[in-house]
Design a protein around this nucleic acid. Sequence first.
DNA 1: CCGGTTTCTGCAAACGATTGCGGTGTCGTT
DNA 2: AACGACACCGCAATCGTTTGCAGAAACCGG
Lengths: 337, 337
Amino acid sequence: MKSGLVTIKDLARELKISASTVSRALKNHPDISEATKKAVHELAEKLNYQPNAVALSLKQRRSNTIGVIIPEIVHYFFSSVISGIEDVAYDAGYNVIICQSNERYEREVANAKTLLASRVDGILVSISKETEDYSHFFNLQNNNVPMVFYDRIVPGLEADQVIIDDFDAAYRVTRHLIDSGRKHIAHFAGPQKLLIGRQRKDGYIKALKESGLEIDESLIIEADSFEKARLAVMRLLNEKRDFDGIFAVNDLTAIGAMQTVQKKGLKIPEEVAIVGFSDGRFSGITDPTLTSVDQHGYEMGSIATQMLLKRITAEDDSYPAETRILNADLIVRGSSL
Amino acid sequence: MKSGLVTIKDLARELKISASTVSRALKNHPDISEATKKAVHELAEKLNYQPNAVALSLKQRRSNTIGVIIPEIVHYFFSSVISGIEDVAYDAGYNVIICQSNERYEREVANAKTLLASRVDGILVSISKETEDYSHFFNLQNNNVPMVFYDRIVPGLEADQVIIDDFDAAYRVTRHLIDSGRKHIAHFAGPQKLLIGRQRKDGYIKALKESGLEIDESLIIEADSFEKARLAVMRLLNEKRDFDGIFAVNDLTAIGAMQTVQKKGLKIPEEVAIVGFSDGRFSGITDPTLTSVDQHGYEMGSIATQMLLKRITAEDDSYPAETRILNADLIVRGSSL
DNA sequence: CCGGTTTCTGCAAACGATTGCGGTGTCGTT
DNA sequence: AACGACACCGCAATCGTTTGCAGAAACCGG
């Protein structure tokens, strides 16, 4: 801000009264006479006075700003989370500072630091794929910064969190495949060091076990991208492995699998059923349309923000950490009918 | 911020020296003895001192923060713009406050107001679809807030801006189709009340005219969604119209067209070539892959931010407004080979 | 006419950090 | 012995706003 913006002192000088009077007049304090109030309000209007939020933040020791640490904005899921965050924050009169970790640990640490320096009133976090050391979050916690983790949480950190029930969703996906008659279901899994990756795999395994199907470890392949899915499918086919279903850890992976399967002349869903995860913009436009799991990103963002605001505004914010587990909806489409 | 965070005064008290000395010691001012510096740095480290950015902002009258007004985050294009903004800002040590107008005028005005109150050092804006009154931007300009408009600009406002050349891109798309031998090219157009809708159509028309091809008005159909594209293709086929190419105003429309064309047994690209616009995540995953126009959202965001930072840091920021017109790249893929 | 309200306004400190200026103490030099 | 140079540090003001407290003026009742 160059300067030039009119301050309370400018109003005071102009009206030949004190800054304190102007301040009180602006907020209609009963101590101030109607005449003064009127004069102040009129001048403020005329000079287009805008209270300096920075000064206010300093004085009140709260910034009316919340910080967000997000792995990568350019994902349908994460951008819808942001959208939910922003909407709730806006309604509550809070600003939102976005920090993107780009899935990098170093940058996440830097983000935590700048948000602390900015004295945000609270922070929403989803950790990066790289992160294994959590001391920057413990540090924030020690400084009593209200924090809510969404989607990707820190194991062993006592903090508010909102996640979806990945285990259950994966379980339901797999049951759905089993119920429709598939017996050899492959799982294209995410990184097992991320909780989410493990839970989805575990849900898959539970469903198989429950149905008395054998767990074929060689049908569980770590593949979480379009390209890796293509390779994985190729390998399965080359090895002449028997499979009639694929549960992929995300939609892009599912689509990669889908195309390769089709290219090899197999029919979807007749010969191979395919299910993705985290229903994005893609699922409706593939051919056939893709069965997937709606992660409700917007809802997650808005709930996380509500939880954060609750903790920020609580007189006593030492109440126990809350965990909200959202239901992920299985959306059955053409690829698994 | 509840409190608890250690301040320079805490350090001073602990070491029984003055706050000024601590401040200078922290930034290695030559006036301070090595012994004192060491003591201060060590205590700061130990107590995990973090400078209060709010106090600094007030003192320096600059917040090291830039504001962003964006129509809707949940779009591949806009989220990649944000990503570009965030990356450049991060490297320059700036924070980013995101405000979403949700395509609503009222909210955009409120956004402008809070960003002004927050005393951001500059603002990046893409206007909402609703906005027709621009006084909130003129207001910002009167207050000397550096501003850069990206993608959706304000006509008649002398300000920095970065846009892409829609007309030229559409022209090149159409030329590409013509050069590959198509003679009856349909255009699935966007709403003609939006500038980009008109420009894309005009580019299409120019290319046709230039090549001596006739303009068949009945091949220009207002269709800018997946579903509308399906209907449009159906209609063309039912009417047994002759067409060997489709230029769609965006990718989703192109994909809708693609699927319908394929479903009717026509080969892509042999019998019908298809081109989309604003290369999103989709284009690489369709089958065949979709020729499209890369709008370079990330680049637009990063360039806009660079322009903004330039104006913010300029000693004299009264240099004339700049307009950067980015080339949109035609990415030729399988659907038009 | 005096004491006591009531009504309105201003002083000054505070939030956390920076910085010009002045002050103190220790040397060395002549 | 005296004086200047130098190294080191603190005072106080400042950024814009809020707020407890005190003070001034006006009014009322007796």
